[in-house]
């Protein structure tokens, strides 16, 4: 125990022998994973490998069967979803998940980390600080000119950016993105890679992605998952030439 505590000091996120079982099926099986401060970690792996489930476990959407997830000295497996968010973990879903009935501005405003209690929300004021921060983030996610557009009519790529922006505005210390460039055009992918590279100056990022070009553009390190376990880990170069990875994933 003592040793673990020491270990987790060095990493912002340390996952130790994490297992989750759905009616006997182990979607994540005795998995360990460590993410450094300000690192961009990419998780790849075949469909059904358990990538999304790992994110679900970190952000509390799914409860672990056993194992531990330590983030910044906190045990996440014991915390509720919104507490995990307050601790500094932000998560983007696989399908763009934004509030279609609201404008871009309102989407970002609702994500601004103030007035998160019932009373806080009732008395929340749209002050200078909020407006400036919203505009700043909108600029980063290339939506500055669409602040008062209804989110429903954004393009698919813009929706993905908006959701990333909704996380950025919270200034999370760990940002988790599930397939952020799925459905984006090539130009949009390049812009997104730039965006990710700029934001990691002060946060760690976990990205799940299938697009290898994009992975090469952003990854500091890559983890390959297969059947709920880590198959290989290291630099993109190393992982790419790992025969086991080629066999289960990259080969086809």
């Amino acid at each position: 125990m003592q040793v673990n505590e020491q270990l987790s000091k060095d990493f912002i996120l340390s996952i130790d022998s994490l297992t989750v079982s759905f009616d006997g099926f182990k979607a994540v099986n005795d998995l360990s994973l460590y993410v450094d401060e300000n690192e961009i970690r990419v998780i790849i792996g075949p469909n059904g490998a358990g990538k999304t489930t790992v994110l679900d476990l970190i952000c509390g959407r799914t409860k672990a069967t056993s194992g531990s997830i330590r983030f910044d000295g906190l045990e996440l497996t014991k915390m509720r979803e919104h507490e995990i968010v307050h601790a500094g973990v932000g998560r983007k879903f696989q399908n763009p998940s934004i509030y279609e009935d609201l404008t871009v501005f309102e989407n970002l405003e609702l994500s601004f980390p103030k007035g998160r209690s019932v009373f806080g929300a009732l008395t929340f004021r749209r002050d200078r600080e909020v407006i400036e921060r919203v505009e700043e983030v909108a600029e980063m996610i290339f939506l500055k000119d669409h602040l008062h557009t209804d989110a429903a009519i954004l393009s698919h790529g813009q929706k993905q950016w908006l959701e990333i922006g909704m996380l950025l505005i919270q200034k999370p210390r760990l940002l988790m993105l599930d397939e952020p460039v799925a459905g984006m055009s090539v130009a949009e992918r390049i812009k997104t890679a730039e965006l990710l590279n700029t934001i990691t100056r002060n946060q760690s990022v976990i990205v799940i992605e299938h697009d290898m070009k994009f992975v090469e553009d952003i990854a500091h390190r890559v983890t390959v998952l297969h059947q709920g376990k880590v198959l290989s880990e290291g630099s993109m170069e190393r992982v790419k030439h790992d025969p086991r990875v080629v066999e289960v994933y990259l080969g086809h």
């Binding site: 307050h86 509030y99 009935d101």
Partner: peptide, 24 residues
């Protein structure tokens, strides 16, 4: 109020609200 907009947001995407740090 922001509460009202949160309600709309919850109607659309409850999970997104929850994972933006609100106790829905």
């Amino acid at each position: 109020s922001k509460f009202g907009r949160l309600l709309i947001a919850m109607r659309d995407r409850e999970d997104r609200v929850r994972f933006s740090g609100y106790d829905v």
